[in-house]
Nucleic acid binder design. Sequence first.
DNA 1: AAGCAGATCAACCGCCCACCC
DNA 2: GGGGTGGGCGGTTGATCTGCT
Length: 332
Amino acid sequence: MGRPPCCDKANVKRGPWTAEEDAKILAYVASHGIGNWTLVPQKAGLNRCGKSCRLRWTNYLRPDLKHDNFTSLEEECILELHKTIGSRWSLIAKRLPGRTDNDVKNYWNTKLKKKLVNMGIDPVTHKPFAQVFAEYGKISGLPIQNAKNHIHLPNNTTGKNHVCMESKQFPFSNGTPHDKFVHKIMNDQLQENYTKNYTWDSKETLQTHSSLLISTSTSCNPTVHSYSPSFSSVQSQVHTMPSSTSTCNWNEFIFGDPFTSSGAEQKQETFLSNLLQKENPTCGEVTEVEEKQPVEEATCSSAMDSFVDTILANEKQMLMDFPPLLDVYLDY
DNA sequence: AAGCAGATCAACCGCCCACCC
DNA sequence: GGGGTGGGCGGTTGATCTGCT
């Protein structure tokens, strides 16, 4: 059999901690140190779950914690790391002395996410919403036309293609929180921008309203993309969508989370180490990852195209094989 | 001053994985 | 080897605070 339960959850106190309880934990840790939290409530005379004690100590009572506001430097660090590794709060917090994963998570959810949204950047992908939208369309096998949503997206290689959304509703949401979030933002922005006669100047270039966009790398480069040192300077980069290929950048999607492949932990440490060694991202030393870049760049373009083509072909085939799905799929 | 809405953040929930028995 | 837990983690909740009308 396994270990006995850490506590009787029905009979332990929950909710806010009192000063007296805090004092008991502090006294216990001072005399016994940290370890075996299941024994802490019993030995410290607390009617709390051991897990709850550990959380209280980790997130609030630890003497090395900072309780003041996040600095701009910490803010930039969080942004950079979140862009690189996503919502791995504990990893991010380890790079910020005196901050806990809970602190970082709360700061992200209450402040930074909103800042990015206000700047027109998707806080999940860290890409401009317009770019996210373009990639969404590509992934979803647009063009899609039906009676309720009439969307014309570029489907040939020449000439201009005008986007027309009669319902002005961004149609692709599978119900996840992120999708709902993107869905809402897309609807808001579509409402605003498609009335301005969005155009694609061939499939190569997306000409769009400059205020929505910041310059971001769309190359097939799985290395770290650097954040500018401040929000103001990020905004100063606002120009137009880079005139690179408008095909979905699958490397960024796939390598956007660089730790999903094998050897994740080692790769992650190397990655973070490289990242944090770069004091000046734009002129830093060449990293091992960057040295590999030319090889990957040489191969990724065709791989990306074939990957996209495969997905589009599979989707088309599925709809051909199961016509009843067609109605469900397109009936937003 | 009261009521309300939005923001904040401590605490909890539920899952995963390493480890214990 | 397998059942079960502890510790760690990300996501979510809800009490409290703050600002606005």
